[in-house]
């Protein structure tokens, strides 16, 4: 496209410029958290509405980070409504065992890739979301820290444990898969 589509003077970002380009990122995160097409769409729609209302507090910078933080909040409040009784145990507080660190790599098995979505499904929301942000959206630790509103050190340890947890789940599924095949 040519540059005439852009304003020629320095103007504050319009809502369209700053946020609408990030709707794929918004949808991807919502879809992984909600695990349901329509729920994800609803959440993204609500997130855009909230973002629109709060847009005068947007201080410029990375629109994606700002939007994803809102998407995430919308998703979590919907999830809380859905699972009335589920205790909100933080992923950071469980499983400090270091034995998972020795999990062998499951990628040698052809079935591993097919089982990956199932393994992701078994993860706590906080583990799944950090993998989505880092591995799919390509967010840097700094950006993830801003989206999750946690220190970078927490991002670092949570991501490491999310990866190990995913490998562990994948191993379990593979073992089941293999014994099933016998």
């Amino acid at each position: 496209m040519d540059e005439s589509a852009f304003p020629s003077a320095v103007a504050p970002a319009t809502f369209e410029q700053a946020l609408l380009p990030h709707q794929d990122a918004a949808y991807n995160l919502a879809r992984w958290l909600m695990r349901h097409d329509h729920d994800a769409e609803d959440c993204v729609q609500e997130a855009f509405l909230r973002a629109y209302r709060a847009f005068d507090r947007f201080r410029g910078g990375d629109g994606r980070t700002w939007l994803l933080a809102i998407v995430r909040n919308v998703c979590y409040s919907r999830l809380r409504q859905k699972r009335l009784v589920e205790p909100p145990i933080s992923f950071d507080e469980i499983e400090h065992s270091s034995s998972v660190a020795t999990v062998e790599s499951p990628w040698a098995h052809a079935a591993a890739r097919e089982l990956l979505p199932q393994a992701m499904d078994k993860l706590p929301d906080e583990a799944r979301e950090i993998l989505v942000l880092h591995e799919i959206e390509g967010c840097a630790y700094k950006e993830i820290a801003a989206i999750l509103e946690v220190p970078i050190g927490t991002v670092m340890s949570r991501l490491a444990r999310a990866r190990l947890k995913l490998l562990g789940e994948l191993q379990l599924l593979l073992r089941k898969d293999l014994s099933h095949g016998l």
Binding site: L116, R163, L167
Partner: peptide, 22 residues
């Protein structure tokens, strides 16, 4: 491991109607 993960995890694309809904 990370490369395998990145190659295998799908990125869900927003459905076309979502833009209209927004």
């Amino acid at each position: 491991g990370r490369a395998a993960l990145r190659a295998s995890l799908p990125r869900y694309a927003a459905p076309a109607r979502l833009t209209e809904k927004i």
